[in-house]
Design a protein around this nucleic acid. Structure first.
Lengths: 218, 218
DNA sequence: CGGCATCCACAGTGATACTG
DNA sequence: CAGTATCACTGTGGATGCCG
């Protein structure tokens, strides 16, 4: 991308991450920590393969992404965020929060990946019962599933594909349905009854939902 | 711009403000509150006029910018941010903060506009003596000047071009020099002596600098 | 298979010129 | 002042091919 050539923080940021797809690649790496090329392709539906290769090179040159040769169990190169790359998380969360009203009622032919939900969930939800033993919620939507772990006052979301050697057997609650129903329920904008009436399925101990609260001030 | 078609907050945000120049137009409107077309051109060096027109139309359609017919003193159309547009401020500040390390030592042929400094200054600085009478600092760099008002615990930056009917006569302190020296001094990363040694000029009551502190937690 | 490179049609961009 | 018109150029998206 052409540099804007402005002595201004925002312009300098966009010089590095302002290209099409760049911030979404970083979102993907924030979520999965380390990803192969093909994992990124699956997490970025619609990206052309040449663009993904080009962007990864540019982000590497920009000090945001690093390339590693993973040991035998994977045996191929994986991509990770550098510390500078991880430092983009607040900006990405702020943009995502701004767009929350745009994630309307019904999903209009949009692609869905379950692990995309992990970022907003773990940043906007807290565990109100830090002293209790950990609870887990399994979420099925779109293509696959993620597991939320509620423990020690915080909420963590993990995607299943290949981060997990432990499939977290026996979750306390299993949710499945359209993503906006799941988000509405977990963010406490929708009651369980309302969400169920609109097609959400919730099996297991629904009391664990009471453990969740929206983070107060951000 | 083509929509990403992802059911994801970040992607939806980029669908609206992810185009080239869009966020910089919003930065400009955050800084000046209301601007004419030609004001925007001056604040966005390098933008092609057709692109500015196109982007303004798209941002209007996206509910971020609104067009108003200003009364006689100006007599032409002005552009403003909507409430939704102003809500982008945290995201823009986060991106700008991330890029702070990229605003290196010396300005390498970058364009500079004095009012670009106002946004980081008023978000990262506080007034440590809220009960004192207001102090003002005039800053000259790049093309023009801005005035910082330090009062009631907060810092406000205002650009001169045409927001002001009151030129704030008699500032307590007048700073002029390269932008990174001014930012370094005000953000307390540079001592007054060091900044002067590198070419900064400071005339007036330099004690008002003691009134400023970097905001604690963000 | 995973990680690209190449090719091509087309949409977006940037510089300049021009207009009501 | 606030754009529109034109046009060369660059970036994007889709398909396919290559190579370890």
């Amino acid at each position: 991308m052409r540099s804007y050539g402005h002595y201004c923080g925002l312009a300098k940021a966009l010089d590095v991450v302002g290209d099409r797809w760049s911030l979404l690649i970083i979102r993907e790496l924030l979520l999965v920590d380390a990803a192969r090329y093909s994992d990124l392709q699956r997490g970025l539906p619609g990206i052309a393969t040449n663009l993904l290769a080009t962007r990864l090179r540019e982000l590497e040159a920009g000090g945001v992404v690093a390339r590693h040769d993973a040991p035998p169990p994977i045996g191929t190169t994986v991509f990770r965020l550098t510390a500078r790359g991880k430092a983009l998380e607040p900006a990405i969360l702020a943009l995502g929060a701004w767009a929350a009203p745009l994630l309307g009622e019904c999903t209009e032919r949009d692609e869905v990946r379950a692990h995309w939900l992990a970022l907003p969930l773990q940043s906007y939800l807290i565990d109100t019962q830090p002293t209790h033993r950990p609870s887990t919620i399994e979420i099925h939507t779109g293509d696959g599933s993620i597991t939320m772990e509620i423990a020690n006052g915080v909420v963590r979301g993990r995607s299943m594909p290949w981060t997990g050697t432990d499939p977290v057997s026996d979750p306390d609650l299993v949710l499945s349905g359209a993503p906006h129903l799941i988000m509405g329920l977990l963010m406490r904008r929708l009651s369980l009854g309302a969400a169920r009436a609109r097609g959400l399925s919730a099996r297991g101990n629904t009391h664990v939902l009471k453990r969740l609260a929206v983070r107060p001030s951000t």
